[in-house]
Write a protein that binds this DNA or RNA. Sequence first.
DNA 1: TCCTGCTACGTTAGCGGTAACGTATTGAGG
DNA 2: CCTCAATACGTTACCGCTAACGTAGCAGGA
Lengths: 338, 338
Amino acid sequence: MAIRLKDIAADLGVSTITVSKVLRNQPDVGEATRRRVLQRVKELNYRPNLLARGLASGRSDTVGLIVPDLVHTFFAEFAKGLKAGLRQRGYQLVLASAEEEPQLEVEEIENLLARGVDALLLASCQTSTEGLRSLLESKRPYVLIDRVLPDLSSHFVGTDDVAAGLMATEHLIAGNRRRIAHIGNSELSTGADRFRGYQLALQAAGIPLSDSLIVQSARLEESGDTVGYAAMDKLLQSRQLPDAVFCYNDLSAVGAIKRILEAGLHVPNDIAVIGCGNLRLAAYLEVPLSSIDQNTTELGEQAASLTTSLLSGSSRPEPREVRIKPKVVARASTVGKL
Amino acid sequence: MAIRLKDIAADLGVSTITVSKVLRNQPDVGEATRRRVLQRVKELNYRPNLLARGLASGRSDTVGLIVPDLVHTFFAEFAKGLKAGLRQRGYQLVLASAEEEPQLEVEEIENLLARGVDALLLASCQTSTEGLRSLLESKRPYVLIDRVLPDLSSHFVGTDDVAAGLMATEHLIAGNRRRIAHIGNSELSTGADRFRGYQLALQAAGIPLSDSLIVQSARLEESGDTVGYAAMDKLLQSRQLPDAVFCYNDLSAVGAIKRILEAGLHVPNDIAVIGCGNLRLAAYLEVPLSSIDQNTTELGEQAASLTTSLLSGSSRPEPREVRIKPKVVARASTVGKL
DNA sequence: TCCTGCTACGTTAGCGGTAACGTATTGAGG
DNA sequence: CCTCAATACGTTACCGCTAACGTAGCAGGA
C-alpha cells in the first residue's frame, strides 16, 4: 500500500541496499547516487517501515518509558525532559502508562519489549521483582526511574529523596518548629527515603521521634488530597497537636491544609505545612504551599544521558545511580511566626 | 535471542502456523494440540514479536495518540480514558507528545504511521492541513481530538466548546453580571468556539459586545497563568472595569485572579471569574475557582468507541462528530454578591 | 467400494527491510 | 600491460511471523 524502499530502488535503477545505505547514512555510496536517492525520497515523501527495519536489524533506536500515571504532572514533566534528551541523541521515545496497576505495568513491559525497544525506562509500581521477569530475561538494558525496587540492583535515575525529606524537615526546624509530624507513603521507596530524611533531620536537631506524629498510607499516590485530609484528621486527634507537618507530596499537603483550616487553626501560625513536588499551582493555593522542587526536567535529561550511554557502550557497566539534589521552595505555608 | 514461535513449534513437533493459530485464537486447531501449545507458551513465557507480526499481517491492533502536551492534565486524563476504552476492545495505545511544536507533531505522525498503527488520534497543534500530508496519504483512519482544523472535515471527538462558552457566560449573567470580559485563545478552534458561545450568551441576554472587554492571545495554551495575568492587567486599564471574566482555561483564570487581587479588588464581589477545564486543584485555590468541567474520561471513552468502530467497519462512513456537553461547576470565584 | 465433505494441520511465499559478503570498475604504480 | 587496492554497488540469505492455499485422514452415505 504505502511506498516501499524497493519502489525507490526500482524507480532509480539501483538496488534496494543502496537506497537503504543512503537512508542510514552509510558509506560505500557514490555522491551522485546518494543525491539522486535523497531527492527521490523527498519527492515521494518516503519513510522507511520501522517494523521491517526493526525486524531486520534487531535495533530500533527507540527506548520505552513506562510510568505509573501520566496525570501526575511529575511523570508528564519527566517524560518531556526525557524525550528532549533522547531526541537530541538520535533516539525516539515510546510512552506507556500503567495506571497504577502492577499487572498492567507487566503487560506494558512485555508489550514494549515485543515492540522491539532497545532499552526500557521504568517508574515501577511493582511491589516485587516478580513482574520484571520478562524484562530481566530480555537482557535489554533498563533504568529504574524515581523509585527503586527491593532486591534489584540496577541503573537508577531519580530524586535524592533522603535529601528531600531532610531539607523539608530542616526547613521546618529552622522555623522553630519542634513537634513535626509526617504524612508519608510507606509503600514506595520514595516514601521510605523521604521518611528517612525526616528522621535524620530530627535526630540531628536532637528532637525525639514520636509515633503519634507519623501517619503512613499506601494510597497516597493515587488520591493524595483525600488521603492527606484523612491523615491530618488523625493527627489533630492526638493529645498534643503538631506545630508542623511534612507531607509526602503536594496533593496530600493540600488535603492536610484543608483539614487544618476546617479545624479553625491557622497555617502556618498554628501548624506549618510543607509538601514535596512543587506543583505548578502551589503558589496559587489558598495557602501558598512550601514544597520541595525535584528539578524534573534535569531528571529527564539525566535519564536520557544514562540510557543512551548504556546503549552505545558495548560493555555492561556497574549499576549507576544518579540522584538529583532537590531544593526547598519556601512559601506562606511555612513562613510565619510560630 | 528471545524465544521464537518457531522454537515452540519445533519443541512440540507441530508446525509454526499451528502455534500461530493458537496464539491468535483461530479455528482449525484440535483441542488437545491447542492445550499443549498454550501450556508450552506459558512455561516458556513466550510473547510473539510484534514487529514480525505487524509486518506479516499488515495490522497491529494498535492505535496511536498524539497530543500537544502531556503536562496539560486534560490530555493526560483523556489518554487515560482512551486507553481504558481501547483496552476493553482489544486494542493497544501508543502515546506520543508533540510538545506544542507543529514540526515535532508532523514527525510524530510519520513515526507512528511507520510503526504501523492501525489508526491515529490527533489533538493537533497544526495551523494548516499541510503537515497532515503523510496521514492523509496513508489512507489510515484517523480521528481529530479536542481541536478541529480548518479545511479538513474528519471524524472528531471533543468538547462542545460553544456550549462551554455559552454556559460559562450564562452562569455569569445569572449572577447579575453585565460587563463580562473574555480572555481567549484566538488560534485554536476550541478558543474560537468558546468565544462564539460567549457571544451567543451575551446576545441572548441583550448585552452588547464590547471590544474593550475582549483580550485574545495565542500563547494562552503554553503559559496560561502569566498570559492570563497580562491579559487581566490590560482589562483593568479600560475606562470601565468589567464585573466578570470568562477565561479560556483555568490556568489563565488563575493568572487573572492574581492580577485582580493585586489591584486590591475582590473576587467575586468586584469581578467574578470563571475558567474552563476544571483542574483538580481548582477547589483549593486562593479563590476557589468556578469552571467548566469537560468530562474528560467520557471523551476518552467516546474516542475509543469511535475509533474501534472505524477499524472494524469495512466501509468508510461519513465523518462523525462527537461533542460532549460540559457542565458548570460553581465555586467561590463566581458565587457572591455583586 | 468409492466419493464427498469435514476437520486438523502443513507448505510455500512473502511482509519490507538489513547484514555480510561478493563482484565489477577504476586508477595508480611498477 | 598487469597487478592491486580502493570505491561503488549488488546478491543472497535471512528477521519472525502470517495469509492463502494444499493435503491427509476419517466418517458417513450411496
